[in-house]
Amino acid sequence: MLNCSGISRSAIKGYSQSAQFDGKRFTNAAPRQPLKFTEYMKMFWDLAFNKPKETVPQQRLPVQPITSEALAMAADNSVFRLGHSSLLLKLKGKYWLTDPVFNLRASPFQWLGPKRFQAAPIELSDLPPIEGIILSHDHYDHLDYQTIMQLKDRVRYFLAPLGVGDLLAKWGVAEEKITQLDWWQSTEVGEVHFVATPSQHFSGRGLFDGNKRLWCSWSIITDEFRLFFGGDSGYFPGFKEIGNKYGPFDVACLENGAYDSRWADIHMMPGDTIRAFQDLKGKWLMPIHNAAFDLAFHHWNDPLIQIAALAREQKIKLSLPVIGQAVNIVQPREEAVWW
């Protein structure tokens, strides 16, 4: 078991200890589905010019502002939904962020790229003291440079998959704050146990760094609850393995949004999200990766409509709070339809 004393030095020297690293890049257990060059070009053309207007809501979505009073009143071991895959976790009296993106765009540019539907329910400057940031991978809608730069001196710990920790250090995050883990490695901070569990995805922030950094999900465990944070993933047998090792999970926060059959092996379709939840032996499903950025061709609320219908059909307990609303991990509840 690693602890939060700093970066794994062997990772910096090439990640040779990782079964996921082939000497040059990280790989999935199963290869991604191949697309022809012409298919790639058509997909990018459609993303740029052929998206239906309904991919963006025509009206502002309901948002519950997160105030200091709301933070104080929330039960310990709660999850606040910030939008997309960003969550504010209140665990054992301390606050953690997952994949925090507070920027206007999920993009390397301030003037181009997917734009937020609306601002986050709390300003960065109003966040409570943050014990740690939990990162799943390096894509712009999960790892935002501006957000990290504004938080790096206010956060005690950064937990990341292999390679992402090195990137944080390059950005100026103090190395003693960073722990980066391979799949199935774990660390403890106080009374909370964190396991970097597998996912089926990819990485890269530019033209030349594809799959140079690992991607992962997270199993977060205390003596009171088990929480799964899925990051990004296609459906794969690893969910069943995670469920067998660390389930059942009280709440599984799983990707449900930005999907398309052309990239179903790296972003789950709604039916895949249900299968993953069942494999994880989840008790409550909290769908994430939606209602914040326009990243696919489906209507903005299609993920919510589909997952709600599938959950009813499969008799799955579903928690879909509005942005900014808190959910008790130990005692979740179903929310009113807001989409």
Rank of each mutant, 00 (worst) to 15 (best):
W284N: 00
K281S: 14
Q314M: 12
I307P: 00
E313T: 03
I305W: 03
P270R: 06
F249Q: 05
P248E: 01
W263H: 09
W300A: 13
L304A: 15
N301H: 14
G243F: 07
A291W: 05
R312M: 04
A252V: 08
L304K: 15
A258G: 12
L285K: 01
G271L: 10
I307G: 00
L310P: 00
Y235C: 01
N256P: 06
D294A: 12
R262S: 10
P287N: 01
V251Y: 02
F236S: 11
N256M: 09
E255A: 15
I274D: 02
F239M: 09
F236I: 07
H298C: 14
L280E: 10
D302S: 14
K281E: 09
A291Y: 05
K240L: 09
A309F: 00
E255K: 13
W300F: 15
L254H: 11
R275G: 02
A258H: 13
G271Q: 08
C253Y: 03
H298S: 12
A252M: 04
W263D: 04
P270H: 07
I266P: 00
S261Y: 15
D302N: 14
A252K: 01
T273I: 05
H299S: 13
Q306Y: 03
W263R: 03
N244H: 12
L280H: 12
I307K: 01
L295W: 12
Y235K: 02
I274P: 07
M269P: 01
F277M: 09
E241K: 13
A296P: 03
P287C: 00
W300I: 11
H299V: 05
I242W: 11
G243S: 09
R275W: 02
F293S: 02
G247W: 03
I274Y: 05
N244G: 07
G243H: 07
D279P: 06
N256R: 04
Q278P: 04
T273M: 03
W284Y: 04
G282I: 04
E255L: 13
W284T: 00
L295V: 05
D294C: 10
K240R: 14
W284A: 00
L280Q: 11
R312S: 07
P287R: 00
D260C: 10
I288N: 04
Y246L: 03
L254E: 11
K245Y: 10
H298I: 08
L254F: 06
P270F: 05
D302E: 15
A264N: 11
G257C: 08
N244R: 14
L285R: 01
Q314W: 03
Y246F: 12
Y259L: 08
E241T: 14
H289F: 11
H298P: 04
G282Y: 06
P287Y: 00
T273W: 01
Y259N: 07
D294M: 09
M286D: 04
G243Q: 08
G247L: 07
D279A: 13
P303I: 05
N244I: 06
E255W: 13
Q306M: 12
A308E: 07
E313A: 08
L295I: 08
K240F: 07
N256I: 02
C253V: 10
L295T: 14
A311F: 03
C253T: 07
L304N: 15
D265L: 02
S261I: 15
V251T: 01
G282R: 09
G257S: 06
F293W: 08
W300K: 10
F249W: 08
D250H: 10
L280W: 13
F239P: 13
A291K: 08
A264K: 14
I288V: 15
I266R: 01
D272A: 04
A291L: 12
A308T: 08
M269H: 06
D272C: 01
